[in-house]
């Protein structure tokens, strides 16, 4: 305690500077966390949060009893890993190219255009997917027919959908993520590159030995940040593309869509909260573990 007060006095300005942020999270995140208790009650408006009867883990039962949880967790984790890694690597590649390339207007224009998909709603993405892949009039099948090939009914097969979904997710986030890496590259001092140039290093070498290593903390940070949400899915993305098509669920069902279907007919605050808590807990354990490992290897890269 005394250490803390000494620290407080010594760094009082620093404490003051971070205080607004801490208060913000207390008011808008920590206090509302009392709502987690909903997961353990049978909610009624009569009782409210604390007056409703306590039911223990009963609200979690629907997740575990169905036997689908393993497949759901696997799907959710794999999709998110694909989103995280494919997305980050592509964003990094774009950022590196854009930072090194000449042609001011080309760069500016392409950067702006890459940001456009961010504004396209999932509803419209769903419409694109339909227009591309439907059996009767979809662009892909029209092309196949014109080439004299056998048309392929995407909506009856599970195989292509993982690629389609990953593609559209990565596509939507491309511009957004690229900006982060671009900003990080801009933080790298020119001196390093100048020195390397004088030493005769070509552009590939400079990227390999200067830019990439210096981007590593950012890359690891972004991965760590995303891992916490590894069990939380992009509900809208899956819903708009797959909808009610049970035929595709083996490959496309994630926890969020599953919970939505389970509760769509008879919504229950307790069960909804319970599902969210399960997702949070899983992410929490994962992040703390991975962060611990990262910390062992390279303290500076750790998230906390």
């Amino acid at each position: 305690m005394r250490v803390f007060f000494n620290e407080l006095v010594k760094n009082k300005v620093l404490f003051l500077m971070i205080l607004p942020a801490l208060l913000f999270f207390i008011v808008f995140s920590y206090i509302p966390m009392v709502g987690i208790y909903y997961a353990f009650t049978n909610f009624s408006f009569d009782g409210g949060l604390f007056g409703s009867p306590f039911v223990g883990l009963q609200n979690f039962k629907f997740l575990f009893e169905s036997g689908a949880l393993y497949n759901l967790t696997k799907n959710t984790v794999l999709y998110n890993l694909a989103f995280i890694f494919v997305g980050n690597i592509l964003q990094l590649v774009c950022a590196v190219f854009l930072s090194e390339m000449a042609g001011k207007y080309f760069k500016k224009a392409t950067q702006s255009i890459m940001f456009l998909p961010f504004f396209i709603s999932f509803v419209l993405i769903g419409a694109f997917v339909y227009n591309l892949f439907n059996f009767e009039t979809g662009a892909v099948n029209t092309l196949l027919r014109e080439l004299g090939l056998q048309p392929y009914d995407f909506y009856l097969h599970t195989a292509p959908w993982k690629y389609i979904i990953v593609f559209f997710n990565v596509w939507k986030g491309l511009g957004y993520g690229t900006v982060i890496y671009l900003a990080a590259i801009m933080g790298i001092s020119d001196e390093y590159h100048e020195a390397a140039k004088i030493d005769g290093a070509n552009i590939f070498k400079r990227i390999r030995y200067i830019t990439l290593p210096l981007l590593r903390p950012t890359f690891i940070l972004l991965i760590l940040l995303s891992l916490g949400g590894i069990l939380k899915g992009q509900f809208d993305l899956f819903w708009q593309i797959v909808g009610n098509n049970g035929m595709l669920y083996d490959a496309t069902d994630i926890i969020d869509t599953y919970v939505y279907r389970s509760l769509a007919i008879n919504f229950d605050i307790g069960m909804g909260t319970a599902a969210g808590l399960f997702q949070s807990f899983f992410g929490f354990v994962l992040v703390v573990t991975v962060n611990w490992i990262v910390r062992k290897v390279q303290k500076d890269y750790a998230l906390f």
Binding site: F62, E65, R261, S262, M271
Partner: peptide
């Protein structure tokens, strides 16, 4: 209610 949720899910999927 947890059985109902599971049944509704199966109903939609299969």
């Amino acid at each position: 209610k947890s059985q109902l949720a599971a049944v509704n899910q199966v109903y939609q999927q299969f």
